[in-house]
Design a protein around this nucleic acid. Structure first.
Length: 653
RNA sequence: GCGCCUGUAGCUCAGCUGGAUAGAGCAUCGGACUUCGAAUCCGCAGGUCGCAGGUUCGAAUCCUGCCGGGCGCGCCA
């Protein structure tokens, strides 16, 4: 199996060999990647390469002269006849005009490769661990999490299509202050069933926060105030914790029953564990609505030795770092935290070390172990990333919210330090621990709009629009439409640009909402094929498309041939949005072709040869759009359900 | 103050990683359904690529300095 671009690259590569034999190029010349691009101007041919610019230096010639010498060689090695014309243009471009056979073959390529068309092996099976979402299991996911989720999941799909061996992972942040606070918040609601009932009734009415009795006594000042906390308590009150006592107000009994709470830590109480597990279930459900599933769910607890059969890797790695110059104890720092049990000695990571490459160096040394002996989030992350590399991954990718960007250099720095540590320990694999094994993709924020106006969100009040709300809100006739709209629209911006998500636009069924545009294109193609099948005019799948002759058909054939290029590029650049843009462009080309030739060259016509060839093109287009949508996790409907008519629309509006 | 991201048509954004005359959608205006889907298409108009230097055959893209916007700089995660 091969593709159009591979054929042309092969041709150009043979031409460079010939050039070496003819003395046009020096003998010793490293093979290089040949860039092929589609010129904007039709007069520039079907494909252009800047190969001669790249080779000019090595050849000691100016690009234009080299191109002049190169052009006849391309013709000479073109034994298959793929090239109709080679032209030297501008300062040294080689413009190629393909023969009919060449571009027509791309239609056949697609049909023969089917669902596999577009796959490549640029990734060379590199083992990549892709961590994304990793939202704290302390509450519902919001739209920002959703964007990271869609980006991560689509990137995984795109990279797999490009030959990377990708494992996806969700890091469950179930240790520390935040989950502890979650447990306490739930606990407070549990102890006051009457107040809970009142509050839930009011919340159930749609009133987000206000209710007469306020929060339960002793509710933590910085606790989680959302309605979902009371709901969680209600749920646990019904199902229990598999513990002997039924009286939630019996503090002593519950503490005794908190068998997992041997350390007295709030984040390790049974009730806390049940609370975050429940939140995690909801997160898993929400992700499922977007068709996102993880290969691994990695519990932070195991890094602290809290899960069965795990050891305290955090303590272990801290101790080992302390044995080197990478970490040190600070006796002067007094803990600000009044809850601190002992005013002990905090442990710092020397992130400012001169021994760190500049790009991994931090502005200040960071705390790993607090003065009271509790490890920080950073400490666990050190153990976590050590563990990731120890599992044998070649490359790590983390998708993070852009507000975490200050954390990146620290994390890379510590991986570098771990490498040095392992070298000192005589680890033969130490070279694998380097800062540039970690790649962090920062996803910018999402602003939620309704009809152009920002939707107010205040996390503190507990009132915020959840990802689930958004998916439900933009779900229209088809069950998958909410998922499709959210996924596609999140991919219409590159990750490092802020994104406005307009709920009204996401429901719209016009070009403003590109997901419908692309899906409509797919449905339209299906409908043509359906008609052709009904009339018994579908050719065999491997029938040639040699009767295609229109410029628009040439352009479409060349466009579908680009899918493998787009996928490879998107995977390499970690930019899945390129696939989304490609699909809208391709559909635009198809809709244009369809409309322009409605009267003079319909797909199904009198001439059998033309009809068959056009149907092959239609089939190929459908295949390519379908493959692309699958990559984006968006459904490719065979038909679109009817729109509500104008009267209904107005009644709604 | 320091660091990261960002500035492209009236608005929202692409721009194949340094290539040829910078492109879409929306909005405005004007056109196209007797046929395989008008959820579509065609056309008009719209630009000092924030500003100023620099690098070279060539810059929206790379380097420097300003200006404007966003986000970070916890013994939070």
């Amino acid at each position: 199996m091969t593709t159009l671009h591979e054929r042309i690259r092969g041709l150009l590569s043979r031409a460079s060999q010939a050039a070496q034999e003819h003395g046009v190029l020096p003998q010793a010349l490293a093979p290089r990647e040949i860039q092929l691009e589609r010129p904007r101007q039709a007069s520039h041919g079907d494909m252009a390469t800047n190969l001669c610019f790249a080779l000019a230096k090595a050849a000691g010639k100016n690009p234009r002269a080299l191109a002049e010498a190169f052009a006849p060689l391309v013709r000479e090695v073109d034994v298959e006849g793929w090239i109709q014309a080679v032209e030297v243009a501008g300062p040294g471009f080689l413009n190629l005009r393909l023969s009919d056979a060449a571009w027509q073959a791309s239609v056949t390529d697609v049909l023969l490769q089917g669902a596999d068309f577009g796959l490549g092996n640029a990734g060379a099976q590199e083992r990549v661990l892709l961590e994304f979402v990793s939202a704290n299991p302390t509450g519902p996911m919001h739209v920002g999490h959703g964007r990271g989720a869609v980006l991560g999941d689509t990137l995984a799909r795109v990279m797999r299509a490009s030959g990377y061996d990708v494992t996806t992972e969700y890091y469950i942040n179930n240790v520390g202050n935040q989950v502890g606070k979650l447990g306490e918040s739930v606990w407070c609601w549990l102890r006051e069933p009457d107040k809970r009932a009142t509050a839930l009734a009011i919340w159930g009415n749609g009133d987000p926060v206000a209710f007469p009795d306020g929060f339960p006594a002793g509710f933590p000042e910085d606790g989680y105030r959302g309605a979902y906390i009371a709901e969680c308590a209600e749920d646990l009150a019904k199902t229990g914790l598999d513990c002997p006592t039924a009286d939630w107000t019996d503090d002593a009994a519950w503490r005794a029953a908190d068998v997992e709470s041997v350390t007295g830590r709030a984040d390790n109480r049974t009730i806390t564990v049940r609370a975050w597990q429940r939140q995690l279930d909801r997160i898993r459900d929400d992700l499922g609505k977007l068709d996102i599933r993880f290969d691994n769910w990695f519990s932070e607890r195991r890094l602290h030795g809290l899960d069965p059969e795990t050891r305290d890797a955090v303590k272990d790695v801290t101790r080992r770092l302390l044995g080197t110059d990478w970490a040190y104890e600070d006796e002067n720092a007094a803990p600000d935290d009044e809850d601190a049990v002992v005013a002990g000695r905090a442990v710092f990571f020397r992130g400012t070390s001169e021994n760190l490459p500049k790009q991994f160096r931090d502005g200040k040394d960071r705390v790993i172990i607090r003065g009271d002996g509790r490890p920080t989030y950073f400490a666990a992350d050190i153990a976590y990333h050590d563990h990731k590399l120890a599992r044998g991954f070649d490359h790590l990718i983390n998708v993070l919210g852009a507000d975490h960007h200050g954390y990146v250099s620290r994390l890379k720095g510590v991986i570098h330090a771990l490498g040095d540590l392992r070298r000192q320990e005589g680890d033969a694999n130490a070279a694998r621990w380097t800062g540039d094994r970690l790649e962090v993709l920062l996803v910018q924020m999402v602003a939620l709009l309704r009809d152009g106006k920002p939707v107010p969100m205040g996390k503190r009040s507990g009132e915020f629009v959840t990802l689930r709300d958004v998916i439900d809100d933009v779900t229209t006739a088809e069950p998958a439409s909410g998922r499709d709209a959210v996924r596609f629209l999140f991919l219409m911006r590159k990750a490092d640009a802020q994104l406005d998500f307009d709920l009204e636009v996401a429901r719209r069924t016009s070009m403003e909402n590109p997901v419908y545009y692309v899906q409509y294109g797919h449905a339209r193609l299906c409908s043509i094929l359906e008609r052709a099948a009904k009339e018994g005019r579908l050719p065999a799948l491997d029938a040639p498309a040699t009767a295609l002759a229109l410029d628009d058909e040439r352009a479409l054939a060349l466009a579908i041939a680009e899918l493998p290029e787009v996928i490879a590029r998107a995977a390499k650049a970690r930019e899945p949005h390129q696939v989304a843009y490609y699909l809208t462009d391709l559909c635009r080309a198809f809709h244009g072709y369809y409309s322009r030739h409605k009267s003079d060259a319909r797909v199904i016509g009198d001439d059998d040869a033309e009809t068959h060839a056009r149907l092959q093109l239609v089939r190929a287009l459908k295949q390519v759009i379908g493959n692309g949508l699958r990559l984006l996790g968006v459904s490719a409907p065979e038909r679109m359900t009817a729109l509500p008519d104008a009267a209904e629309m107005e009644a709604e509006g």
